[in-house]
Design a binder for these strands. Structure first.
Lengths: 133, 133
DNA sequence: CGGTATCCTCATAGATACTG
DNA sequence: CAGTATCTATGAGGATACCG
């Protein structure tokens, strides 16, 4: 995602047939852009556990700036992955939750997280042995 | 991944239990760093189809610079996800292939690509309707 | 062919201050 | 509380040139 919320010009990518399946292969680039930024998956992982208020998200994600939280949530909302609900009380209350489609992505992402847990040690060892040379 | 190949200081992240499962939650950050850069998944997707020469990879991935191809391959090798095999002929020949662990990540990533194919249209429509306001 | 070495750009994101 | 508005900087990644 870019700063103004517009998507980048997708790079054409020539991947094997079992990946592209005859469709324009730039689509891979699109998911990666959607999922590859610093905070999106993290937010989706948390929202995968249920709706959260803006302030709850902010507290849950150590190190995120108010700016990036808002920017990322807006981008997810724009893509139809989260829903933003404003309750106009004073002070205002804003809740965020995954859409049905958002949940499907969230579960795919969980699979990656699971992979990470399982192979963390392997990678760590690989790095040490590589760096030893 | 950073320029010199070392990993970033992982940010502590407070995610729900079903995500963290009691383990240090910064691990999510690690996968994202591993998978979230511009070329890693793309290369893994191609290598998922079988071994490739350096020059083949270069031709397959439109838009990648020699610098980034080498850098990314080195990083994947360091993490034990690809194997680099040099055949010292003249001119030299270098082949890259996924390790068994690399293949397991590659298949998780394929799941994400599949998701993208399925929901590309949905996202596109969501964006148009969001931008209309 | 398969890389390094440099230099440079620009997008991503952090910090800070202010607001309805 | 839930944001904007600015300003700034860092580092990922591109361009180019050269090398064993």
């Amino acid at each position: 995602m870019t700063e103004d919320g517009t998507s980048k010009i997708a790079t054409h990518i020539d991947v094997p047939d079992h990946v592209s399946e005859g469709l324009p292969t730039c689509r891979l680039r699109e998911v990666l852009d959607r999922v590859g930024d610093k905070w999106s998956v993290l937010i989706m992982a948390i929202l995968g556990d249920g709706p959260r208020r803006y302030s709850e998200l902010r507290r849950s994600i150590d190190g995120i700036s108010q700016r990036m939280l808002t920017l990322t949530l807006r981008s997810l909302e724009r893509d139809g992955l989260v829903i933003r609900t404003v309750t106009p009380t004073t002070p205002p209350r804003v809740d965020y939750e995954l859409t049905p489609v958002g949940k499907t992505l969230s579960s795919r992402v969980s699979s990656l997280i699971e992979w990470a847990e399982q192979h963390r040690e392997y990678i760590s060892i690989s790095r040490r042995s590589y760096d030893a040379e």
